[in-house]
Amino acid sequence: IGSLMYASIFGNVSAIIQRLYSGTARYHTQMLRVREFIRFHQIPNPLRQRLEEYFQHAWSYTNGIDMNAVLKGFPECLQADICLHLNRSLLQHCKPFRGATKGCLRALAMKFKTTHAPPGDTLVHAGDLLTALYFISRGSIEILRGDVVVAILGKNDIFGEPLNLYARPGKSNGDVRALTYCDLHKIHRDDLLEVLDMYPEFSDHFWSSLEITFNLRDTNMIPGSPGSTELEGGFSRQRKRKLSFRRRTDKDTEQPGEVSALGPGRAGAGPSSRGRPGGPWGESPSSGPSSPESSEDEGPGRSSSPLRLVPFSSPRPPGEPPGGEPLMEDCEKSSDTCNPLSGAFSGVSNIFSFWGDSRGRQYQELPRCPAPTPSLLNIPLSSPGRRPRGDVESRLDALQRQLNRLETRLSADMATVLQLLQRQMTLVPPAYSAVTTPGPGPTSTSPLLPVSPLPTLTLDSLSQVSQFMACEELPPGAPELPQEGPTRRLSLPGQLGALTSQPLHRHGSDPG
């Protein structure tokens, strides 16, 4: 009997000691992992102490058991019943959930998450997105703005933001810190809205009876308010094209079509300037034949640059190039080494500058006005007194259609001029006259002087055409309008007829 009692007592005591040691061994194993994590990542002392304290409290609170892992091991129907039991206190005593059906309560219970916070733990920081609604079931918390405590909340209090009033989550206007050990039930806004969409009859009752104890939403960050730039940057990543407008005076608003859609830094370009900076079609017209890549860069430059609305530039004389043409100036200075066709295309550029300027006046029909002061630039669209967005969009579309028509007509005119030049060069190729044979009589004449090349004649003739079109064909006081194609086609051969009437002889060394 004594040996039996000794064996039973010894066996029970050893089993008890073994169970104690097993729990202690698990605790030390998990604690060792936490300390190894702290050492590996070199976490500083204040945060390291918070980690160790939280682990110790969580171990004593749950005995080292992962409740979520245990809950996920059950089937979904059983999980709903378990969640309904775990959140029964909240669902029974909170006013917004009263009167809900059994199915609605089960769906809500599945969406709730339980959070346990030790003292000093910050649940929400200032500036964080308010993605959830919090219900306090135990403990107390404090809300701070800077170093000032603005509120202390306790059991059955609710904090967050009214989700039904805002389409997008706002930002917190303060820090939420736990004063004691707290148990909180939180539900994400997407989950709550999903359940309320499934039960629309409960939705009206819920929003009407929901009383948020403390609204954390920062009202200064609401979209459309003066301080909402940061919020707009976070939620409006896919922005449309940006529009900046110059201020319109009362006198300017009476004149229709007073602005032109141009790229940034293009205030001095012609009315047909689009795409790359520098001139019509993204580059100076005089350098068009020598740089074919300008047409390839036109599309990307047009689509990537934001639109700006600026006044037209001052008018340019008909014979003056659009500006920024070092290529043609070098050719004029060193005409001995340049291609003979460069002079002809220089005359073509003069005609283009004249036609572009006159067509700009035809479509816009307003006098040039000086540029406004820099303080009046970049007025935002949302400022008071601005035109409605639809009106601005319609004006932009009208300007775009005008620019497209202008570009089409300029292309047709350019093709006409090039065809005339090619026809003239085919009839009378460039050549130098040879020395004529002296006559049989004693009164022999001296050799004839060489005839100037055709490109120079073409430049003079085209300059005469531009001056003739600019000065004589337009009646005084009438708006400057571009001439039609047949009129220009008839004027060019008439001007060139006198020049080509002389018999030109080919030089023996000319390969053409």
Rank of each mutant, 00 (worst) to 15 (best):
G170I: 01
P340I: 13
T373S: 10
P429S: 15
K155F: 03
P162E: 07
S463H: 14
P289M: 05
L459T: 12
D336W: 03
V417P: 04
S209I: 03
I187C: 03
I136H: 01
K240Y: 12
P322N: 13
Y199H: 11
D147C: 03
V417T: 01
I222A: 11
I212T: 02
G127L: 03
Q402V: 13
S244D: 15
D147L: 03
Q364H: 08
F214A: 05
L499K: 09
F235D: 13
D336S: 11
P271N: 12
P374V: 09
N350K: 15
Y432M: 14
E194L: 06
L243A: 11
S461K: 13
P322E: 10
E320P: 06
V435N: 15
Q495G: 12
L262G: 10
N350I: 02
L454A: 12
G268E: 10
P442E: 12
P321K: 10
C182Q: 03
F206Q: 03
S383K: 05
P384I: 15
A371R: 08
S272M: 11
P503I: 11
R168F: 10
L410N: 06
S305G: 13
L192P: 03
R359T: 12
S225I: 09
S433E: 06
G263W: 09
Y363Q: 06
V435T: 09
P162D: 06
P200N: 04
G360S: 10
G146S: 13
P493N: 08
H507T: 12
P317Q: 09
Y134H: 14
S209T: 14
G224R: 11
P370T: 06
P306G: 05
L421D: 04
M198P: 02
T408P: 04
R405Y: 01
T337V: 09
M198I: 06
D413H: 08
P370H: 09
E332Q: 15
Q483A: 10
P482Q: 07
L474I: 13
G282P: 11
D204P: 07
N220T: 10
S466Y: 05
D413I: 15
F202S: 10
P388L: 08
E232G: 06
L243T: 11
P430M: 13
F345S: 06
S383Y: 04
L418I: 04
S444V: 06
D297H: 13
P289S: 07
D460F: 01
E320G: 08
Q402K: 03
S444L: 08
V148S: 12
F345E: 11
S291G: 11
R239N: 08
S208D: 13
P429W: 09
V465N: 15
R266W: 10
P318G: 15
G347M: 06
K186N: 08
P482I: 10
S349L: 04
D191K: 01
R401A: 06
I379N: 14
D197T: 13
G497S: 12
G508A: 09
T458S: 05
E230Q: 12
D357E: 14
R217Y: 02
S294W: 12
M469N: 07
S346M: 08
G265V: 09
S394T: 05
P300S: 12
E258N: 12
D183P: 01
A267V: 12
A151K: 08
D190E: 12
E480R: 10
S287T: 04
P318T: 11
S314V: 08
P306W: 15
L403E: 03
S286N: 10
S236L: 10
Q402I: 05
L341Q: 14
S286C: 07
S446T: 11
N339T: 11
V259C: 14
G497L: 03
D336C: 06
D330F: 11
Q362H: 13
A269R: 09
C338A: 13
Q502S: 12
E480W: 08
S411G: 09
M425L: 10
P285T: 11
P169F: 01
A178F: 02
L153P: 01
K155I: 04
Y166V: 07
R361E: 08
L262I: 08
E211H: 10
V149C: 08
S286E: 15
R247K: 08
F202Y: 10
G512I: 14
G347H: 06
G270K: 07
L153K: 01
S228L: 12
S335T: 06
T437Q: 09
S272Q: 04
S225G: 09
A132P: 02
V417I: 11
A415E: 11
I351P: 09
H185C: 09
A344H: 15
K242I: 13
L499D: 09
G154Y: 11
Q464I: 07
P264E: 10
R217M: 04
R405G: 08
S444T: 12
P372M: 10
D357G: 09
P430S: 07
L196R: 02
S225F: 10
R359M: 12
L399T: 03
R308W: 03
S303K: 13
L457R: 09
S466F: 03
P493I: 06
T229S: 06
E201T: 06
M198C: 08
P453M: 09
L130E: 01
V451F: 08
P479H: 10
S509M: 09
F312K: 12
I143M: 02
E201L: 03
S140P: 01
R239I: 13
K171I: 11
R405K: 10
K251T: 08
L420V: 10
P321Q: 15
S342R: 10
G512D: 05
P292C: 08
S273R: 08
A132H: 13
E161I: 01
